[in-house]
Lab assay of single mutants.
Amino acid sequence: SSGGSSILDRAVIEHNLLSASKLYNNITFEELGALLEIPAAKAEKIASQMITEGRMNGFIDQIDGIVHFETR
C-alpha cells in the first residue's frame, strides 16, 4: 500500500507490540521500532494509541523516549 501500512500489517504490528509488552518491562522507541521493523516514531504512535484505547497497559515517557509496560 502506498499511504502507510495495510490493515494486516497494522494487525501484525499490534500483535508483536503486545508480545513485546509481555517480554519487556520497558523499551526505547528505537529498540521497539527495530523489533517491529518500523520507524521509531511510528512505534511510538501505535504504542500510544493502543495504551490510550486501553488495549495495552503502560505509559510513555516522551522525555526519555521509552515505553513502560505495566503487567495486568
Rank of each mutant, 00 (worst) to 15 (best):
T71A: 11
M56Q: 01
R72E: 12
T52Q: 14
N57V: 11
P39E: 08
I13K: 03
L36H: 01
I63Y: 09
A20E: 02
S21K: 02
V67C: 03
I60C: 02
S21P: 02
I63S: 09
H15M: 13
N26K: 14
K42T: 15
I38N: 01
Q49R: 06
D61M: 05
I66G: 04
I66A: 07
E30G: 07
V67L: 15
S21M: 10
T71S: 11
S5M: 13
I38A: 01
L32W: 02
A40G: 07
E53G: 07
D9L: 07
V12C: 07
H15I: 12
T71Q: 13
F69R: 01
K45F: 13
S1F: 05
L32P: 00
A34V: 11
N16W: 11
T52A: 15
E44N: 07
A20K: 05
T52H: 11
Y24L: 07
A41F: 10
Q49N: 09
N57D: 09
F59S: 08
E44M: 14
G65I: 03
L35R: 04
G3T: 12
N26D: 06
F59N: 05
R55C: 05
N16K: 15
E37M: 14
S2N: 14
K22V: 09
S6P: 12
S6W: 08
M50Y: 03
A43I: 12
N57I: 10
P39R: 03
N25F: 09
G65P: 04
G3A: 11
S5R: 02
K22A: 07
I63V: 13
Q62S: 14
S2G: 12
R55H: 06
I27T: 02
A40D: 03
S1C: 07
E14D: 04
N16M: 12
F69Y: 03
D9E: 08
A41C: 06
E44G: 11
A11H: 14
F69G: 02
G33L: 02
T52V: 09
L23A: 08
L32S: 00
I60H: 01
K45M: 14
P39G: 08
I66W: 05
A47H: 01
Y24E: 02
R55M: 07
G4H: 13
A47D: 00
D64R: 15
S21E: 04
T28V: 01
A41I: 08
E44Y: 14
E44I: 15
S6D: 12
Q62I: 14
K22W: 08
S2Y: 05
S5T: 11
N26F: 15
L36A: 03
E14W: 05
H68S: 06
K42H: 15
T52Y: 10
I51Q: 03
K45R: 10
G65Y: 04
I7G: 13
G4N: 12
I63F: 08
F29C: 02
I13E: 04
S6F: 10
A43V: 14
A43E: 00
R72M: 12
G3K: 05
I51Y: 03
N25S: 13
S6K: 06
Q62V: 14
S48A: 13
K42Y: 15
A20Y: 15
T28F: 03
A43P: 00
P39T: 13
E44R: 08
T28L: 03
T52E: 15
R72C: 12
A11S: 08
N25Y: 10
I38E: 01
G54N: 07
L18V: 07
A20C: 05
G3C: 07
R72N: 13
L23S: 08
Y24R: 06
E53H: 05
L17Q: 01
S48G: 10
F69V: 02
H15G: 09
I63L: 10
A34H: 12
H15S: 13
S6I: 10
Q62A: 12
A11L: 13
G65N: 08
V12G: 08
D61H: 06
I7E: 15
T52C: 07
L17R: 01
L18I: 11
N57E: 13
A47F: 05
S19H: 14
S1V: 13
S6A: 11
D61C: 07
L35D: 00
S2K: 07
A41V: 10
D9Q: 06
I51T: 01
S19A: 15
E44A: 14
F29T: 03
I38T: 02
G33W: 03
A11P: 06
S2I: 12
S21L: 08
H68L: 04
E53K: 03
N26H: 15
